[in-house]
Design a protein around this nucleic acid. Structure first.
Length: 458
RNA sequence: GGCGUCGUACCCAAGUGGUCUAAGGGAUCGGUUUGCAAAACCGCCAUUCGCCGGUUCGAAUCCGGCCGACGCCUCCA
């Protein structure tokens, strides 16, 4: 039985989907005003892991990830660069999708963009006004009245009376019923340039939280299974989303809220000014592979902070190597075809089902690796067990996605290796070592085994 | 100021009342293997879980205090 830690109840709960065997999943996507950084991708990678576990446990998953393509930052950028909003957002949306695919993240079923769902948002805002949960201000903005929703603050348990106001509360909010009311619709201002939509309240654009409520409802229905995001989105984003959605349709909104913790870099929050700021492409350029990035993120539990440092690449590289080494050892055995898994798969699944305990599952997997290696060293591994092992590895990788595709050995390297074998037969060690260096220079390693040389990528 | 998360070996990191004299990975060291290296494989590596008290037959796990780190507090995953 799958169990998740539900942020809403602050308990680990059995996962029971609304419709048996099916899961409706909504994950907060990026604001496409700049390149997403690896902190963002920690969350997306956690969501990918969740999805892969759901799929592996036999659920049918319908996954929606929004693209926020209109907000202050996107508008600012489009004005600053003198380009239409859509040009900016399309550019960064494409970059985002490239990064997703380079990290081997399974794509969502839909990526709805906020700007394509403004009508649905307007409709929802009208419903809220009608039910007295929202009101129009003089300038033509619409605000949600948090006093109209008794359970406001349930997710984060914030005491609204004691909250210290940050100086970001702008002066034009003096007209609000409650200074903490949030915008559903923002009236047009000059700095918005060409960005506006017509609405019953005049020109303007939707507030940030609105898109997730309107789009999740459109694609997943009023009430769905899982909503994910980073912890920082609990407040205000998710809190506001709940308020809007519940008040608009009077049904429960989301059953399970899952939040992933922050990624720290060199012990602190990533920030451009400190310079500890990485994008996926930065890491790839530094020679880190997408598998190594996945390993680093997935070797910690999603609810703990991960401190990312470049030195961790080594650990990832060695661990991945170890798995691949076993895989290639097993591949050399004539294995009987069989559909079973080793016993350890049960513990492995238990760990995953227990709130996605990926480090624990990894530990089980590495325990199994040691057992099989010992058994192979003692030459007591049966063909059937070898076959089970290969199945286990591929099942493992269907969830972690950390084994790179193995390249076939280039002909040039094969030729050199053959030449080196000749030199070794003649005990011409000098020439042999020279050829080994040459092969190494081409990115391949030679291992001299009892069955002849084996070539592996470095 | 309010709310919250966390502190486990040299590093990373599970475990949240008994099977814990605490998984797993990396590094180091020792060994097997090897023409030699490299790689691979095996073994070793915390009587102890930030500190101090308490509850309990029993605590890394629960409670209180202290110290330390980090985050959120109106548009940052």
């Amino acid at each position: 039985m799958l169990r998740f830690y539900n942020s809403l109840t602050r308990k680990k709960e059995d996962f029971i989907p609304i419709i048996k065997g099916k899961v409706s999943l909504y994950t907060c996507g990026p604001t496409v005003y700049d390149t997403a950084h690896i902190g963002n991708f920690r969350t997306f990678l956690f969501e990918d892991f969740l999805k892969r576990v759901l799929l592996a446990r036999g659920f049918e998953v319908y996954h929606v990830m929004n693209i926020t393509d209109v907000d202050d930052k996107t508008i600012q950028k489009s004005v600053a660069e003198g380009k239409p909003l859509s040009e900016i957002t399309e550019y960064y949306t494409n970059l985002f999708k490239q990064d997703l695919s380079s990290l081997k993240i399974i794509p969502a079923d839909v990526y709805p963009a906020a700007t394509e769902h403004v009508d649905a948002m307007i409709q929802m805002i009208e419903q809220l006004i009608e039910k007295n949960h929202a009101y129009v201000t003089k300038d033509g903005s619409v605000f949600f009245s948090i006093d109209s929703y008794k359970n406001y603050g349930a997710l984060t348990r914030l005491n609204m009376d004691k909250m210290q106001h940050s100086d970001r509360v702008s002066t034009d909010e003096y007209s609000l019923d409650n200074p903490q009311d949030f915008a559903l619709w923002k009236a047009y201002k000059d700095e918005d340039g060409e960005v506006f939509w017509e609405s019953p309240w005049g020109k303007g654009r939707p507030g940030w939280h609105m898109e997730c409520s309107a789009m999740s409802m459109e694609y997943l229905g009023d009430h769905f299974d899982i909503h994910c995001g980073g912890v920082d989105n609990k407040f205000p984003h998710h809190e506001n989303e709940i308020a809007q959605s519940v008040c608009a349709v009077n049904t429960p909104f989301v059953n399970y809220w899952l939040h992933s913790e922050f990624l720290l870099v060199d012990g602190g929050k990533m920030s451009k000014s400190i310079g500890n700021y990485y994008c996926v492409s930065d890491l790839l350029e530094k020679g880190m592979t997408s598998e190594e990035i996945r390993y680093n993120f997935l070797s910690a539990h999603y609810q703990t902070k991960v401190n990312f440092t470049l030195e961790k690449q080594h650990e990832a590289k060695r661990s991945i190597h170890r798995i691949m080494e076993l895989q290639s050892r097993l591949n050399e055995i004539d294995s009987d075809l069989c559909n079973d898994f080793p016993l350890e798969v049960e513990q492995f699944n238990d760990a995953l089902e227990n709130n996605l305990d990926s480090p624990k599952a990894l530990a089980v997997f590495f325990d199994w690796i040691r057992r099989i290696n010992i058994s192979m060293d003692e030459k007591t591994l049966s063909n059937k067990e070898a076959s089970k092992g290969l199945k286990f590895i591929s099942y493992f990788d269907s969830i972690y996605g950390i084994l790179p595709k193995t390249d076939s050995v280039p002909q040039g390297v094969l030729d050199l290796s053959k030449e080196r074998e000749g030199a070794r037969q003649n005990k011409d060690w000098e020439k042999s070592d020279e050829l080994r260096d040459q092969i190494s220079g081409m990115g391949w390693m030679v291992k001299d085994t009892n069955d002849g040389p084996k070539l592996t990528p470095k």
